[in-house]
Design a protein around this nucleic acid. Structure first.
Lengths: 339, 339
DNA sequence: GTGAAAGCGCTAACAA
DNA sequence: TTGTTAGCGCTTTCAC
């Protein structure tokens, strides 16, 4: 730390004015390439780094992106979102300032105040799973991009996973393996993932001439225990499914346990595909769990890049609300149906 | 956003000078309580919020804490650390600016530059698992607290988990349940957790008059597959262990699988305790996995609080290097030994 | 007790 | 093509 070198030292050392230094470094003004180059090398020689507080104060651009999320922790996915956002920010010479709200309006309000006081240039408003949000009043007029969230404000860009597409990919994979009797362990929460994935499941069945059988669809909490029970129920059917599509990896883990209890081996007697591609689980299960990956990292990157584009003003005029595709990650839990 | 109200508007509205407003709000100066109170209410009425860029520029205190970590993502624990750090920062009216290095020196160096340019008041230098670090030159002179890391610099405060204590608690729990033949699935990496937990394991055996038997200790990569193999090996012993202490939950999951393959049920035929308390796994396993929790959230909090104390100058003069205790979380994987 | 005024380090008009 | 200068919004001497 000690005494950082400032723009005037650079100016003096280069024998020019501070203006020239500022222009040289920021690429502004009308300078000869020679001067620009010389100033730059002097600055570098002096180990000059700008004071962003000062430049932000003057120019009204702090180069700070605020990141508000309801839960930084709890889910292991959160980290990937942050990582993507952080890397994109770094690439734009921006930095991330984070705030966690724990789904508490007061904390959220304080957090927004803190970000605004620090003059963030814009805010990524993130949720840890795909859901509808209502933006707080305090954010009015601030550049915002929604992440894993959507609102009724058509003027905001947002990014969410393509839930229906995810389910389509998963179920299509099972159909391609020869399955026609496919169960679905759905979540019970009233959220886009629940409805979107069910829609995808039904669509693929229809497209393949497979009649929808509601006895093959269960609706429970999306954790391991309920998944185990739900799968057990389906596997006890006289005409049991030969494959299971699971809402998430945790439910799939329950399905593995149910299969074991029923004496069925995977994938010989039962094929399983789920959503999340949470590696700690998917890789650890025996055999490995084939799963649809949610594009957390990509959504983080996209949100920051989009925000940067909007801030730069060179963005396509219209805000974008996009759904990200969710790729299938092959492991060993899918095989042909038993004969 | 629009036109934020500044300190001069408040001054005008309250009929005082900007100095008085500044003093009133920051608690400085020699003002009458009456004035202070009046100014405060006027400021609140006007919805005044200070511009931290300006105050930071002038006062040399940005109220920003930098958070550098090698991996924001990958591990699910990272989130808890960040959460603790964030909450502690918010409580101190500070905010977190995060940077990820991906264990890349160039990225780290850029990240440090970015934080310094934004005039962070101090930095939490974090690793995602307990390890030795060498601090980059660029950080010289900057207030630092190490998190899940330690260095040879005695002038820095740091916090790490008490690895030996964690193992002691785990193994003692097994001994208390009546076990005397206890296997240990250790990690192969040359890190403090590996050595510390082995030491704790040995210490408890010794204290209970149980001879150390090296055939009961395996050393492999700390993931599920290797854990499965290692456990399988121990369970195949003629005088097999009645309990297993596992380096982490992932290895414990492997041990569950090995037990199943060996036809042993948990906890009737085999008791298991591990370290991490990664709920997604520990809760999902059948039966629930008893595990030692690593104090991620607490370390995050402690690091920020300690840094704040050092910055405030009211800290105990000497830096503190502490080991945090790791509590046992009871589930259903421990029982008495089979007779 | 309170206020005037000088900057913090930089950028952006405007001059030259 | 380059330099002068006036602030950005606040804190902090220092004078009253």
């Amino acid at each position: 730390m000690s005494k950082r070198v400032g723009i005037r030292e650079v100016a003096a050392a280069a024998g020019v004015s501070v203006t020239t230094v500022s222009h040289s470094l920021s690429g502004g003004g009308q300078l000869s390439d020679a001067t620009r180059e010389r100033v730059r090398s002097v600055a570098e020689g002096l180990n000059y780094t700008p004071n962003r507080l000062a430049s932000g104060l003057r120019s009204k651009r702090s180069q700070i992106i605020g990141f508000i999320s309801d839960e930084i922790s709890t889910t292991p996915y959160a980290g990937r979102v942050l990582l993507g956002a952080q890397e994109a920010a770094a690439a734009n010479d921006q930095v991330l300032m984070i705030v966690n709200t724990s789904r508490d309006d007061r904390l959220e309000s304080r957090g927004i105040d803190a970000l605004l006081q620090h003059s963030v240039d814009g805010i990524i408003y993130a949720r840890m799973y795909h859901q509808a949000v209502k933006l707080p009043e305090a954010l009015t007029g601030v550049p915002i991009v929604l992440l894993d969230a959507y609102s009724d404000r058509a003027d905001l860009s947002s990014v969410v996973p393509d839930e229906e597409g995810a389910a389509r990919t998963a179920v299509q994979h099972l159909v391609a393996a020869g399955h026609r009797r496919i169960g679905y362990l759905n979540n019970i929460d009233d959220i886009p993932a629940t409805h979107g994935r069910l829609a995808g499941y039904k669509a693929v069945l229809a497209e393949n001439g497979i009649a929808f059988d509601e006895t093959l669809v269960t609706t429970t909490e999306s954790t391991t225990g309920p998944g185990r029970d739900a799968a057990g129920q389906l596997l006890a059917l006289v005409d049991r499914p030969t494959a299971l599509f699971c809402f998430n990896d945790r439910m799939a883990m329950g399905a593995y346990q149910a299969a074991q209890l029923a004496g069925l081996s995977i994938p010989e007697n039962l094929s399983i595909v789920s959503v999340d591609n949470f590696e700690l689980l998917a890789d650890a299960l025996l055999p490995g769990l084939t799963s649809i990956a949610l594009p957390h990292y990509e959504m983080g990157r996209w949100a920051v890049e989009r925000l940067a584009a909007e801030l730069a003003g060179d963005a396509d005029s219209a805000p974008q609300q996009i759904r990200m595709p969710c790729p299938l990650v092959h492991r060993q839990s899918v095989g042909p149906p038993p004969r």
